[in-house]
Structures are given as C-alpha cells and as structure tokens.
Amino acid sequence: MVVTVGVEEEYLLLDADSGFPVSRWEEVRAAAARQPALTGGEVERELLQAQVEIATPVCGSLDEIGGHLRRLRGALRIAAAETGCRIAACGAAPFLGPVPVTDKPRYRTMLDDAARLVDEQMINGMHVHVAVPDRRGAIAALNRVRPWLPVLVATAANSPYWDGAGTGFASWRTVVFGRWPVSGPPPAFDGPQDYDRRTAELLRTGVIRDRAQIYWQARPSERYPTLEIRALDVQLLPEDAVTLAGIVRALVTTALNEAESGGTAPPAPAELLTAANWRAARHGLNGDLVDPVAGGLRPAAEVVASLMEHIEPALKRTDDLDRVSDGVDRFLRDGTGEQRQRRAVEAGGTEALLDLLGAGGGGLALPPGAGAGAESGLG
C-alpha cells in the first residue's frame, strides 16, 4: 500500500531591490488568484504579512511532490514579481524590518500574548505530513521518529543569516522557533490517551491557547490522519525538498513497521535529545552530530549514513532509494542550504545571496544594484 504524503512550505516576501521583508501578502494573494496554475486553498496567509504558505495536494510519489512544488513556486514567483517583490526560500530572514501581523483574530491574540516573539517570527519551515492508520499509529511512530529529528534539523539547515549578519548557526530558525513554550523535540507518550491527557493539561495552564500552538517538531495532526514532521527549514530548491520528503516518509513508515512488529521505541531521554537538537541547529552538517543509536558524537556524514541505513528498506519498497540517496549525496557533496548561502555571501555578498534565495522559485533576476539598500555585515 502506498503511504501518501503532503508538503507545506513557507516563504518570505522580500522587496525586489533591497531584500528587506515587505508586507504585501494581500497584493500577492490577489495576483496569485489570477495564476491559472494555482487553485483555491493552495496559497495561504501566515502569521506575518511578509510571509506566504503553500500546500501540495496529497501525493503518492516523490515525482508528484516535485511537480507540485515546482508548479506552486513558479506561479507564486510570478505573482510576487507583479507586486514588486520576490519569494525567498530561506529558513530565516537575512534582513529584518517592521512587518505587521496578519489581520486574523488568532494572530492578533498571539501578538498580545507574546509581542516580541511574534514580531521576530520571520522564519519559514517545511512541514511534511505522512499518512498514518490511526491516532495510535501516529503516537507509536512519533516515539520512534524522535531520536532522528536532530539529524533532520542538520540536513535541512537553511538559515544562517538574521538581521543583516551571520548567526553562527546553521539553522537559526530552529533557535527562534524554540523560544515558544511548547516547541522543540517532543516527549515520548504511552499512547493516544496519554498524548490527549498531557496536551489538555498544557491547555489548562493557559500558556498556550489552542492545540495549534503545540509546536513540537513532530506531532499528530489535529486536522488530518497524519503525523506531521515540522523540524525542517524550507529548502532552497524543490528537489532538496523532495529528498527530505522522501526521507521523512521512509522514516515514518519504518517507525510504523517497527511498532507493528512489536519492537520497542529506542530510548531518547529528553535532555539528550534537546542537546542533540541544539548541536544540530548550531553546526548542521559541518561537524559532528549526536549519534541517535550509539550515543556520543560522530561525524555528520556518518550519522546521516546511519539514517539512510535505517530507512533503506522503506525507500526500496517505494522505489525511492536511488533518488533519495542521490539527494543526500548532493547535500554532502554540494552543501546544505546553509552552506550554499554562506558560499554565496563569500563569493558575491548580499546580491549573490538574494539571487540564491530567489532561485528556488524559478529565479527572479535582480535589477542592477539590487541589494544596495541592505547595509549589512553579509559581505
């Protein structure tokens, strides 16, 4: 049976000249509505008016995912260009400026509750929904996926710059998102009743107002029969996203198969998982990662190889092994989004970075002198 998957991606809206965020969601939405390649519900607003989100239909293959992402990014790129801006596929805003919250009651309430956090939520993720048979299966898979989440963070890292300067982190998005009260790696649960009881207790504290504010890096969806993996920065290129979607689907299906066969979930103490997650966000694939199987530090490439070995049977069943392996080899050889961003800045400064960030949407040529208004430490 084919396990279906869907992908959501968030992008920034940047001024075509300066590269600073611009509050043009309404204009971009109107332009997107005129694009014949887009249908209703595929382009949605986000927390801040300089962001936009797309969602693929439910897909049965990686080819489908790739086709939809290219279609959606390309059409949205055209819509953004009509309003004088570009979409940027990066995990964090390279430059910051005042951006109002989207006019939605829930978002206004969040602004009242955590004003500075909302103001600085200029981060963009890639969420992968993988079909699960039921709620019990979702929790069983979550428990077995947990140890591998830091490896996903490192492989998907695409946010080294923030507010005009380097952060020293491969995934600054992971750090910013981790400031919310219920975020980061999820705890383990005894089953769906335990999950419901403990999340209800969180709601009773009043610290979060609804289940949508459960921002763990993996969680059962409240809307769909899926497990949602939220640990990934949005990717520079559609094919990078396809590689990660293939990894995530294989990781979840491997977890479901292990649970069905009666295998126990691997131990992953919360404090060690939190530390591994921080290290992954800090270094990406540039150094050592915490080995989720043996513990301790190992070179990142070896830990990624362990992940691929872990999910290889699932990738073979869907005929995705060669494609995903090639994508992983490309990350290791040519660099993750974070590494490619750094190289762009070293080679051509701000202008080269903005070119790179726009290329994933089909490319949007900069006018002469673009980026000149972005005085920064990016080179």
Rank of each mutant, 00 (worst) to 15 (best):
E375T: 04
R73T: 08
P266W: 04
G41S: 05
K316V: 12
S376F: 15
D103G: 08
V145E: 14
R70Q: 15
W148V: 06
E53R: 04
I139L: 11
L321H: 11
L48I: 11
V304W: 13
A275E: 07
V303D: 04
V324L: 07
R144K: 10
F95D: 04
I87C: 07
L38P: 04
V345A: 12
E302G: 09
P185H: 01
G363N: 13
A75G: 13
L237D: 02
A374C: 08
E346R: 15
A89H: 09
A250C: 13
A31P: 13
T102R: 05
A231K: 05
F189H: 03
I78T: 12
E258F: 10
A170M: 13
R179C: 03
R73H: 14
S221E: 01
A89S: 15
G97S: 13
P133A: 00
S18F: 14
Y195D: 06
L307F: 06
E64T: 12
D288V: 07
R136W: 11
R86S: 12
D329T: 13
Q339N: 09
V252D: 11
P187E: 04
H283T: 15
L12Q: 07
S159H: 04
A50C: 06
P225S: 07
W162K: 09
L76W: 07
V128C: 05
I123A: 12
I311N: 01
T102A: 00
D233E: 03
V52A: 02
R179F: 06
G206N: 09
C90F: 08
E8F: 04
F177C: 01
R135V: 14
P266I: 02
V175W: 09
D334Q: 10
L297S: 08
D319R: 15
V130T: 01
G358K: 01
G97T: 11
A170H: 09
D194R: 15
G377Y: 14
L364Q: 11
M308H: 14
A32L: 10
F20I: 02
A32T: 13
G206C: 09
Y11W: 15
V43R: 06
T253M: 08
R211S: 00
Q235D: 03
